[in-house]
Amino acid sequence: MKQLFCVALCVALAPTLTAQRPMDAEDVPHSNKSMRDARRFQQFKLEGRDTLAAVRRVRKELRWHPSVASAQRAAAESGRPIVMIQALGDLNGFC
């Protein structure tokens, strides 16, 4: 009975213990289809007119704060976390 309990405990804890260990090269999954799709995505190109429409939608649908301080005030009021994108360039300009 004791042995059975030990085996059951090991089986139950195995995924948790594996999850804590950093990954090895052998743990990385691979499929040719995924690689093909990833390469196809790298060829993806959005034409200028569509880029303009996409960025306009992003600007219109979200209320962008221009600084951490301003976002922090809004986050304190709403209790929501902040997503701060910091980039070389502006959302509504050269980027």
Binding site: T51, W64, S67, V68, L88, L91, G93
Partner: peptide, 26 residues
Amino acid sequence: FVVAWTNIRRKKYVGNSYGYGLTDSA
């Protein structure tokens, strides 16, 4: 979420690239 965008062109850790306008490709 609450969203914010900041330009890091003057930060010492910034990388380097050229800037593209809103009507350039993505």
